[in-house]
Simulated scan of single mutants.
Amino acid sequence: MNSAKTTLLYTILGWTFLILGVLGLFLPFLQGILFLLIGLYLLSKSSPWAKRLLERMKMRYPKLSSKLEDWIHRVEHWVARSDKKKKKWDAKAPDKG
């Protein structure tokens, strides 16, 4: 995936999770804080203001920051594993040409 598509994907997903997070602050069945953190993390990949806000949050709430870092490592591991499986699957697939 090229850089422009990746940036657009991060931006769309980030804003979606931020909106869900704000809704989750008022609705009891959504995890508002979790969705806000996910949204900020995704937006921090492409937006300087989100990166600054996330860094400020890390300094102010170190326990929450360590949980966020743990979550990020788990997701990155899951994505890397699924990419590896996809590449292996693509190599086995017959060429349609």
Rank of each mutant, 00 (worst) to 15 (best):
L18C: 06
K96E: 15
P62H: 06
S3I: 04
S82R: 12
P48E: 08
S44M: 05
E55F: 00
V75R: 11
Q31Y: 02
K58I: 05
L9T: 04
A4V: 01
T6G: 00
L30H: 03
Q31P: 06
K88E: 15
K84C: 07
K45H: 15
K84M: 15
K96G: 05
L27Q: 07
L25D: 09
G97D: 14
L64D: 11
K85E: 15
K63A: 06
W15V: 04
W49D: 06
T6R: 09
L13N: 07
L54D: 04
L27R: 09
L37E: 09
T11E: 07
K67Q: 11
H77G: 07
G97N: 15
W89Y: 11
D90G: 00
I33E: 10
A93Q: 15
D83N: 12
T16N: 08
N2D: 11
L30F: 05
L13T: 01
V75T: 14
I19L: 09
S47L: 09
A50K: 01
W49S: 09
T6E: 10
K85M: 14
G97A: 13
H77K: 13
E69N: 13
S44A: 13
K5P: 00
I38A: 07
K5W: 11
H73L: 09
L40V: 03
F35V: 02
F26V: 05
S44W: 09
Y61V: 06
Y41F: 10
K88F: 12
P94D: 15
N2C: 02
E55I: 06
P28K: 04
D70V: 01
S65V: 08
H73N: 13
P94T: 13
L37T: 04
L54I: 03
S47G: 00
R52L: 12
R52A: 07
T16Q: 04
F35Y: 12
D83A: 09
L68W: 12
I38G: 01
T16A: 02
L43Y: 10
G21Y: 02
V22H: 00
R60H: 10
H77Y: 06
D95V: 10
Y61N: 11
P94L: 13
Y41R: 03
K85C: 05
S47F: 06
R52E: 13
F26M: 02
L25F: 11
E55S: 07
L34V: 03
M57W: 14
G32Q: 05
L30Q: 01
I38L: 07
G24S: 04
F17V: 02
A4I: 04
K45G: 00
G32N: 03
W49I: 07
L18P: 02
D90Y: 10
T7Y: 11
K96C: 11
T7Q: 14
K84V: 05
K45P: 00
F35L: 05
A80R: 12
K86A: 14
